Structures are given as C-alpha cells and as structure tokens.
Amino acid sequence: MAAAAAAGAGPEMVRGQVFDVGPRYTNLSYIGEGAYGMVCSAYDNVNKVRVAIKKISPFEHQTYCQRTLREIKILLRFRHENIIGINDIIRAPTIEQMKDVYIVQDLMETDLYKLLKTQHLSNDHICYFLYQILRGLKYIHSANVLHRDLKPSNLLLNTTCDLKICDFGLARVADPDHDHTGFLTEYVATRWYRAPEIMLNSKGYTKSIDIWSVGCILAEMLSNRPIFPGKHYLDQLNHILGILGSPSQEDLNCIINLKARNYLLSLPHKNKVPWNRLFPNADSKALDLLDKMLTFNPHKRIEVEQALAHPYLEQYYDPSDEPIAEAPFKFDMELDDLPKEKLKELIFEETARFQPGYRS
C-alpha cells in the first residue's frame, strides 16, 4: 500500500510507478496490472468513496492506442447498470505532455475469474450472474457493438453480487458484411471463450460470437473449470467437437473457408456428449439454455433477447427493466489503419471533457 500523499506533496508512487492523480484522489492501494497499465484503488475526496484507477501508458504502440481509444469512446457513450462506466479521466493539459491516461471507475471487490478459483456457486448465484451478463449484453448488442472478449476476468463483482462487464478494448461495431482481413492475426481474445466460426472463417462476425462466450462462462460457473481449455488453435476446435459432436452437413455448409471445411470433413465422426453427463448436478433449465448458447452453427445460436426470456431466468426476466441503447454506435473511421500519432490526438480530444474549465 502506498503511503497517503500529504496535501501538495506531488504524485504518489505505487510499486515504483508514478500515479499522478492528486489532489482529488489519494490513499492509493495496488490492485493489479494488465498488459499496459496498473490498477489501484484510491480515495475520492470529492465523492467520499474509494474508486478504481487504471493507469494506461499506450502511446508507444499502435495496438494499445487503438484499444484505449475504443474503450474510452464506447464506455463514455454507454450507460447501463451492468456495464462499468467511466467516472473521470485524468491526463496532462497538453498533448505533448500526455504520456499516461488515468481512467477512474467504480471500485468492484472482485471478478468472476477470482471468485470461481475459490468458491463453488449455488444455482441461485449462477442464475443471477447469468441474468446480469445477458442484461448488459442486450444493451451492448442493441448499440450494434460486439464485445468480443467476454470471459470471467472481464466480469466485475461486488459483495452485493452486482455484476458489471468491463474491458471493451477489443470491441467492434457489428459488421457481418465487412471482410476484416487479418482478423485472426489481430484477434487476441482469450482462445477458450472463442466461437468456432472465428477459427473457421475470417469473413465478418456477428453478435452470436458473444453468446458463445457467455455459454462458455455459464459452463464454467457450473463446474469451476473452463469447458474448452484448448492449448492452441486446432486443439481448441477438437475440444469443442469432442463435446458438441461432429457438425451436420448443414452446419458445414455455413463454413465459407474450404480449407477449414475440408479439415472438419477429414475428422472421424464424434457423438455429442449429453450435458447432464458433463454437469450431473446442474439445473435442467440451465443445461437447456447452455445447449442453445453453445450451438456450433452461429445462425442457430440463441440471441440475447431470447436467452433473457428463457425459463431458467424467469424469476428475473423483465423486458421493461432491460434497457437498450438510445442509438446504434458508430465509429467515424476504422481505427485499425491509423498511425499511433493520430490515435493519440483522438484520445486527447475524447478525454477533453474531463479537463478543468472544459467548454463543449
């Protein structure tokens, strides 16, 4: 834990890192770190609560700039109880001085990944967590956004079992017609939660990839272990087919990539493993919904509104309290091709509203 900075004593240090967030945020305490930044909790002297502050230093890398800009653009436009918001952003007053960006968010005690390492969940908890994931996802999908990296560590939890989806750095506007060349190379989302079509096709992607990830998360809540822990690309596919069985001819016809289709045709026939054999203690309604989410063919996979209306979630289902976005989200430009200098300018502009004396 960093010592509390005395008023006016300059930035606090946390594990050798400068955290320049005073005077409003003090009493910093280390939480963890990701690929390009550290997260601390801090005391907000204005709202009198502890908050989470993520320090991001992305400006050396085009990919990190892209992810940072995506996350900020999306989260500043989203407003939903099951999606983490941005409360404040701290950065230098000029673009030349801006080396880091500090993002202030609600402090959540833990995440689903940490929880599943230590606790076996009751059916009631599984049901409530799944409902909140789908409630947040309904809003995301209504904005025409794909999260693309749903996994237990991106689901934040607090002691009252509130759940918030975080990390929109890989999110995209849904565009089933656009052929994202190089899709697989830039697709760094965790393999275990990846839909089979991501490994088999490169053309376009749809909201059904997020539903697949939610199915993987439900299976993990039922058993405290990942359902498809593939060691590499082909191993991942083999794990999936080992449980779902061989795809039907109709399902194979959806695979545009001939090499991928021929690979699947070359494999020995596998039978589907019954879900109640894998999860003998699970609620039968939970397994019915799991089956509809972990469907090989993305066109037959359940959609988020149908999933919310499934009998497993009937005690929570309330369409009048499951809000959607006001308007579909649009990125003005494809960020993939922009140089990091341009992305830095866009991050600077996007964060201006939090600067003292800002006038829109």
Rank of each mutant, 00 (worst) to 15 (best):
A174G: 08
L155G: 04
V173L: 01
A352G: 12
L150Q: 01
K259P: 05
P323S: 05
D44I: 10
P356D: 10
L338E: 12
A260K: 05
Y316C: 04
E250P: 12
G215D: 02
K151Y: 05
R79P: 04
M333A: 11
L241A: 07
N276L: 11
C161M: 06
L75S: 08
T110N: 03
L265V: 10
F348T: 12
R91M: 12
N271R: 07
C166Y: 00
P274G: 13
I256D: 11
R359H: 10
V51S: 13
Y358E: 06
I83Y: 11
V21Q: 05
E314F: 15
Y312V: 09
G169P: 07
C65S: 00
L76F: 13
S320L: 07
I211H: 01
C65Q: 14
P152K: 03
L234I: 04
V173C: 07
S122L: 08
R79C: 09
L244I: 13
Y25D: 06
Q249R: 06
G37W: 05
L265F: 10
N82P: 06
G230N: 12
P23L: 09
R301G: 04
Q105L: 03
D177H: 07
A286Y: 15
N281Q: 08
E334S: 13
G22M: 12
N201F: 09
Y102R: 06
E220Q: 06
E109V: 02
G85A: 09
H61L: 00
L252V: 13
N47P: 12
C161N: 14
D332S: 12
L130C: 09
E326I: 15
D175R: 06
L335C: 14
L137W: 08
R67G: 09
D318Y: 01
S57Y: 00
I90S: 15
P58Y: 15
P226K: 14
Q119M: 11
D167G: 04
K99S: 07
E71F: 07
H178V: 07
A189T: 01
N224H: 08
A325Y: 15
G8N: 14
S246A: 10
E305M: 14
S202I: 02
N201M: 08
L346Q: 01
C166I: 08
R353G: 04
P280M: 04
Y263P: 09
K272R: 04
Y64I: 04
P23C: 14
I217L: 04
E33T: 14
N47L: 07
I324A: 15
D283S: 14
K231N: 01
V188D: 01
Y131S: 11
H147W: 03
L290K: 04
A327T: 09
Q315T: 10
F78I: 00
D177I: 05
E109C: 08
I256E: 08
A174Y: 14
T190K: 03
V21T: 08
T159S: 00
P280F: 07
K340T: 15
R172I: 03
E109P: 14
C216G: 04
Y36P: 04
A52D: 00
L156W: 03
E349V: 03
H61A: 09
D251K: 04
I302N: 00
D162Q: 15
K344P: 07
G230I: 12
R24L: 01
G136W: 00
H141Y: 08
S248M: 10
M98C: 11
T295G: 13
S122C: 03
A3V: 05
L244E: 05
M293Y: 05
D321P: 15
D167I: 07
A35P: 02
Y64R: 05
P247E: 06
L156H: 05
K259S: 12
H120A: 09
D321G: 07
C166V: 07
L137A: 05
R67T: 14
V304E: 10
F78L: 01
W192L: 00
C216Q: 01
A5N: 15
L157H: 09
Y113H: 08
N158G: 06
I103V: 09
D291V: 01
S57R: 12
T118Y: 15
D291E: 04
N276A: 09
E109Q: 07
D332W: 14
S41H: 13
E197P: 03
P268W: 06
K138C: 11
Y205T: 02
N281D: 09
G230C: 00
E303D: 01
R359Q: 12
D210I: 04
W212Y: 02
Q66M: 06
D288Q: 11
L241V: 10
R359K: 01
L338A: 08
N281T: 00
Q62C: 04
A327S: 05
L222C: 06
G22C: 10
S213Q: 04
F329Y: 01
G8R: 07
C216M: 02
C40Y: 07
A219P: 01
N201Y: 01
R172L: 00
E12C: 10
A42W: 14
S284M: 09
A9S: 05
E326D: 00
G215A: 01
R77C: 11
Y139T: 11
L75Q: 01
E305H: 15
K342S: 14
N262A: 09
C161G: 14
T295M: 10
L170T: 07
M108R: 10
D210Q: 02
Y312K: 03
D318C: 14
T181A: 05
A52Q: 05
L69G: 13
L252S: 12
D175M: 06
L134Y: 06
H239A: 08
C127Y: 01
L157K: 05
P11T: 01
E109M: 10
Y128G: 11
L137N: 02
I53W: 08
R277S: 00
I56L: 08
D106H: 12
G204R: 01
D336Q: 12
V214I: 07
L130Y: 06
Y64Q: 09
A5K: 10
E305I: 14
L130S: 07
A325H: 15
V145D: 07
D332I: 14
K330C: 13
I72N: 01
D162C: 14
I86P: 15
R191A: 03
D111P: 07
T110R: 09
P323V: 15
A174S: 01
P356N: 14
I211P: 04
A52M: 00
Y193Q: 02
I198G: 08
T206C: 02
N27Y: 00
M199T: 11
P196K: 01
I211L: 04
M38K: 00
D179G: 10
D336C: 13
Y263W: 12
G215W: 05
P298H: 00
L107R: 13
N27I: 00
G215F: 03
D20Q: 12
L346E: 07
I74S: 07
N271M: 13
I84K: 05
C166D: 06
L134P: 02
K285P: 09
H80G: 10
P196E: 01
H80K: 14
L287I: 12
N27T: 08
K270S: 12
Y193R: 01
R77M: 13
Y312W: 12
T26Y: 11
L116M: 05
N276S: 05
Q236M: 05
D251H: 11
P226M: 04
A6D: 05
L121G: 07
K344L: 13
I324V: 12
L134G: 02
Y102I: 06
Y30D: 11
R261H: 08
D124W: 12
F331D: 09
K340R: 00
R24N: 13
M221T: 10
C65I: 07
D100C: 14
H61K: 12
D111L: 05
Y102D: 02
K342L: 14
W275F: 12
F78A: 14
H80C: 15
I53E: 03
Y312I: 08
Q355N: 13
R67K: 01
L134C: 10
N45F: 13
S153I: 02
F331C: 13
F296D: 04
S320G: 10
A4W: 13
L237K: 04
R172P: 04
D283L: 13
K272E: 07
E350K: 01
A174E: 02
G10L: 04
C40N: 15
D149H: 04
V101F: 04
G16N: 13
D179R: 05
A309F: 14
N276D: 03
L184R: 05
D177Q: 08
R194T: 04
A2D: 09
K342Q: 08
F296P: 06
F329V: 07
L107H: 11
I302S: 08
L267W: 12
L287C: 12
K285N: 00
D175G: 03
R67Y: 12
N201W: 07
K270W: 11
S142C: 11
V101R: 04
R67S: 01
L290E: 02
A9K: 13
K164Q: 05
T160D: 12
P226W: 03
L313A: 05
H125C: 04
G230S: 02
